[in-house]
Design a binder for these strands. Structure first.
Lengths: 185, 185, 185, 185
DNA sequence: CATGAATGAGCTTTCATTCAT
DNA sequence: CATGAATGAAAGCTCATTCAT
């Protein structure tokens, strides 16, 4: 149901009418309602699936015996990769943050997938000396924001085009800045 | 018309009905339509006003003879201050990026207010040696994303509470990370 | 809004679609919704108006210094007259008893208009000797049922025909039976 | 299929969805449609069965060599007993009179079971002198209305409660009033 | 200049009914 | 013989917008 994600991404949750989804997918609205308990559940289903897939990738990235700094770079790469892989769904996840607050399980999954691994890495980095001892909350926002935004801009810009963008390249640049800053030593 | 911004921020553009705005402001819907050419124009008016105000603050921040790095720190502070000062409008600006694309003047103003000053500073920093010679597009996204997200999270978290958050404190932390990174030298 | 009552009477509450009412009255559905807070409120409005009108007639009938038996005959006549005068609304009142239970003010008005005057008359009749000392609850049901049914059958039978039926004639016959029974003395 | 009658009684014909019946009975909707030719046929089946059962009871009541007055008292008792015995189905029969008009066989059966025996008894009573020579049509309505209403009120009031009400007691009271009136001799 | 009243268009959702298996 | 899956049709309701006053 990738095209459903696209409809949501293009029009937003409210703007995405069921009949638009119906037209885009070829599935009658009544069949949609036969399978989902309302519009919100369609959104929830989409996001849950994406979060499950992403969770796996992220967990692989942060695992291992490497220093926290190295694993942080891998995490950034995993984020970027997930965004690039299914841009529409990520856009929706991002745009509908308000509504997601009212879907406890999705909300929890977002914490689990994005914020907790980042926070843990920051704590571990302070312990193993590979990262500075920064305010975790701020640093989490900074990194998540930096990655998300860099990716999002590429996604929106490359509006449906096939190659979209190379997540590896972008994440390398983002990682470089986040880890080492932009002031020369 | 701050309460209008709040209605838009709370419900999103589609979710914010004219009659909700009417109820919140006490102005009858027909009077709203007497003053604005449709719902989209209300949004545009709101954003234009905010962007005008913000434009001034930003221009002051990037002016002066200091090094690009110093002025970048000031720019970050100015962004954060603007967000904190009128959180609802910023939320709307942020959430309705898609729709704003179809309002050329607002879209241009966003470029002018946020992205151009940032990009210029990066170029100047590479020239005066106070900043590394990074890919401008990526760095712009990274910085804008880092600042925006850090602020946004505080705004959403402090949901209407009086003190909201101290923009100076947060922007200092964000600036530190963005400029110097989180890996110890 | 007599034609609205007719639509309700003919199709029942559920069967009477808003668009049928719209078509029958020439008022667009959105205008109906501008004036009423939903389908149930339309019904409630109709019934309230009818009950108000009927209340006056009934109160006149039971007033006066005559014996309870005489006033009971007048009450029966008043009931019958009210039914004949606006048959559609009475049919609706009758058919939608279940739903009316959930409209407390209408429900109370029905008690007030129909059942209380009857019960009072029965008690007074036992006191002044003009009526037997029967179980009030049963007698109330019997009389109300007898009158209602006799009228309703005529209404339904004379389905829209102009003369409908002569309420005075029918109520006289009904009164005769209820008061004196059908067994010869 | 008593629970089906309950669903119809509780929600009315339109309000009773097939899926509600399905849920209440445990029979899948498609199986219901395999056995019945549509929703109306389910109703018809229910009512036919009830009318068949009631027909027997009524015929026993009016048979015999007793005077018409005595047999009328027995008929009233039989009506009341039938109502009390399967209150839900009677409620449906009563509430859906309009729709039943469009089911000729059910409509005829109602005439046969309720109105014809009553009318015959009234004629016979006039002949054997045990009943007054009243207008048959009115008297039929009065008696049917009195019995039905007295029973219905108890049914609705005793909303699912186990003992419901004692039909013999109520029918005795109703019979007393109908036969001898409420004015003392 | 301001607004109460009105409405066309369209949305989410439900439901009786069908049909391949 | 029975049913899970599917759907066409339509219902109640909302909302941006207009306009006579």
């Amino acid at each position: 149901m990738r095209v459903t994600a696209e409809v949501f991404a293009e029009h937003g949750f409210d703007g995405a009418t069921i009949s638009a989804i119906s037209k885009a997918t070829g599935v009658p609205t009544s069949t949609i309602y036969y399978n989902f308990d309302g519009k919100l559940e369609i959104l929830a289903f989409l996001l849950r699936a994406w979060l499950n897939r992403t969770s796996v990738v992220v967990q692989e990235a942060v695992a291992g015996a490497d220093s926290a700094a190295v694993r942080l770079a891998r995490l950034i790469d995993a984020h970027m990769y997930s965004m690039a892989h299914d841009p529409s769904t990520f856009q929706v996840l991002f745009a509908e943050q308000g509504r997601i607050g009212r879907l406890p399980d999705v909300s929890d999954a977002v914490q689990e997938v994005f914020h907790r691994p980042l926070a843990e890495l920051l704590v571990q980095g302070a312990a193993d000396g590979s990262l500075k001892d920064v305010t975790v909350e701020t640093a989490t926002s900074v990194i998540y924001g930096a990655v998300t935004f860099s990716g999002l801009r590429r996604i929106v810009t490359s509006d449906g085009a096939v190659p979209a963008f190379d997540p590896g390249l972008v994440s390398a640049e983002v990682g470089e800045i986040v880890l080492k800053g932009i002031v020369p030593e």
